[in-house]
Design a protein around this nucleic acid. Sequence first.
DNA 1: ACAATACGTCAGCTTTGTTGACATTCCAAC
DNA 2: GTTGGAATGTCAACAAAGCTGACGTATTGT
Lengths: 168, 168
Amino acid sequence: MAQSGQPSTGQNLLFLTDEQVRVGIEAMFFAYRGFTADPDRILATKAYGRAHHRAVHFIHRSPGTTVNNLLAILGVTKQSLNRVLRTLIADGLVSSTVGRVDKRERHLHLTDAGAALERELSDAQRDRMRSAYRAAGPEAVAGFREVLEAMMDEDMRLQYVAMRDKTE
Amino acid sequence: MAQSGQPSTGQNLLFLTDEQVRVGIEAMFFAYRGFTADPDRILATKAYGRAHHRAVHFIHRSPGTTVNNLLAILGVTKQSLNRVLRTLIADGLVSSTVGRVDKRERHLHLTDAGAALERELSDAQRDRMRSAYRAAGPEAVAGFREVLEAMMDEDMRLQYVAMRDKTE
DNA sequence: ACAATACGTCAGCTTTGTTGACATTCCAAC
DNA sequence: GTTGGAATGTCAACAAAGCTGACGTATTGT
């Protein structure tokens, strides 16, 4: 288990030592805090939480998505998601319409008010991310994404890639 | 706010468009799920949670640290941390000793059992991280860390850098 | 007709965050 | 030397958001 840093193939594998990997783990931990900090601050003033942010983000991203679809992306139980959706619908931020071809499905859209909230939250999060991108430069960003993509569970990577390739 | 991708300086800034940044945000979201998945699976079998993992990780990292110190690193309230520490101490995974120079402080250490749990959790998390590192390669890893470090809050970056430089 | 699917809901539990109140210890000003 | 404020840590109660399990309803498809 413990790798002390000896190259074991032809190339230098110093970046795979336990120490290097541990630093990466701590970087993920601290960075994720920054990643959520700005939207969290906004949400705290509005009686919503991170779960609402996630729902609004992905409804914005895939308008008309069904509840089941959203469930798969978010990776939570329907009871948990339902609690969040219920408040968003009651507050008029999300609309739920019965499916036309399959009436069992509910298609979710953001209302104007929902889109406004989404924009407010995303702007805050994007600003920080864009600053980080700018500070690090394009090559670093490419590496950043490569490592993150390699870190995902296979199922999630499929979800992610499908989304990514919708517009990119 | 909306950047459509026109270079505004001498270099190509396509990587700073809203779309590119949004993809990065989603990558962070999905990757973090993978990042925590393996230790979470282990913890679920032991009546512990992610908070216990974090506490054990950083006590291992800085043996003898005080509660206050740990508080600053974890960024939670002392009451929240205390609940976690209490169970870890009761279960004999962490020892808490009154400070010699300042008796208000408690110094925290892992017991042998605590160190064993730490190793089990860290091994699982490190394996995934190391696979991702190996798949992406050294240059990607350097970029990964650059972007993450630029994403942290200033206070957290200081904590992180101090830790990072202890051994690196 | 009947089984499976999609969605919503109720009830209850766990983890982990929060604020408020309180005891102990230290230190510095008086 | 006493004392009052700051720092450290603990106990209690509550909230957000995850979970399981059970059940109801509408719709679809075999």
